[in-house]
């Protein structure tokens, strides 16, 4: 038993494995909202049972399951983040203790794929790394980690003092019962490592998530969609700083069309691999190679934008 202090098998998970269950049939349209993730059928869904107690904290309510509609009521204001990563459901449970009084809330988000679970994890990368799941961070009473296609949050909703160990203990119990072993998205590993801030690396599929990290434009000129994959990282060296974005599309046609829209809509028609400076937002540049688009966002100088773009790798398999 990994959870030691808990006298019963607190978490039982029979997962479907790491396969992606989302429908990635988004056409090359500009409206990401048209995209729809398919919901796994009952046979695909894991049975998740969150523990009844941990470290003196007892569940104060039965666990609840939130779907893609009811999640808006549950996490008012932030549901779109999880939906942007193909959330199929969220299993949650609240825990309390009498003295001193406090609340812990555990949320297990089931995403479309392990890539998406990692992506949710990268939305907020503040915190101290802790060895739970695929990657985990702890800060001020909040533990977040991902494993397989699950993103897990355990957060103290009272005074975070003295709360670290119960939060981590609950996280370990949950992680121990969820599937593991999935690696980070391969595309993330293709970001050139030189001068890359590892804490800045994000994985995403939705333009609004991208705009939260680095604003590109209103709308969706890159045609980000559930069937695309994007990795973002920030680079800094003596010559400047800026973000590099790699986006992989299902085919070269969509990549070329996306690069064309970026050239027209974001760069205002700047030609070729030349970097365009957009006021105080910095220098931007774009290039498509095969089914991949590489874009530099907000570089401090056009020269640095060109340098970053030149370092962007072509997709595995080269140009079709």
């Amino acid at each position: 038993m990994r959870h030691g202090l808990v006298p019963v098998l607190a978490v039982l998970v029979f997962a479907a494995g790491p396969g992606t269950s989302c429908s990635r049939s988004q056409p090359d349209g500009p409206d990401h909202r048209a995209a729809r993730w398919s919901t796994p059928g009952p046979a695909e869904q894991a049975v998740i049972h969150l523990p009844d107690a941990v470290d003196g904290w007892a569940a104060s309510e039965p666990q609840r399951v939130h779907d893609r509609e009811t999640i808006y009521d549950y996490i008012d204001g932030l549901a779109e983040v999880y939906l942007a990563y193909g959330m199929t459901r969220c299993v949650s449970r609240r825990y309390g203790r009498p003295n001193p009084p406090g609340d812990l809330v555990a949320d297990v988000f089931e995403l479309a794929s392990p890539e998406d679970a990692f992506g949710v994890f990268t939305v907020d990368r503040d915190g101290e790394p802790v060895p739970i799941g695929g990657d985990a961070l702890y800060r001020h009473g909040w533990l977040s980690f991902w494993t397989d296609r699950y993103f897990v949050s355990v957060v103290a909703q009272g005074d975070p003092g003295g709360i670290r160990e119960p939060v981590l203990a609950l996280g370990r119990i949950i992680a121990g019962a969820l599937p593991g072993g999935a690696g980070r998205p391969a595309l993330v590993g293709e970001l050139p490592p030189r001068d890359l801030d590892p804490r800045s690396v994000r994985f995403l599929r939705h333009p609004q998530i991208l705009n939260t990290h680095v604003f590109v434009s209103d709308g969706n000129p890159l045609g980000l969609a559930p069937d695309t994959a994007a990795a973002l990282g920030r680079y800094e060296r003596s010559g400047g700083r800026g973000h590099l974005l790699l986006v992989d599309y299902p085919d070269a046609g969509r990549a070329a069309a996306a690069a064309g829209r970026f050239q027209a809509d974001v760069l205002g028609g700047a030609a070729g691999d030349g970097a365009a400076t957009l006021g105080d937002r910095g220098a931007f540049a774009v290039r498509s190679t095969g089914r991949r688009v590489a874009a530099v966002l907000g570089a401090t100088t056009p020269a640095f934008a060109r340098e970053l773009l030149a370092a962007a790798p072509a997709p595995v398999g080269g140009t079709p």
């Binding site: 996490i75 204001g77 932030l78 999880y82 809330v105 949320d107 988000f109 800060r139 001020h140 009473g141 909040w142 977040s144 949050s153 957060v155 103290a156 909703q157 009272g158 005074d159 975070p160």
Partner: peptide
């Protein structure tokens, strides 16, 4: 902080 956007 976190999915519920809140920490005291």
């Amino acid at each position: 902080l976190g999915p519920h956007s809140y920490s005291p």
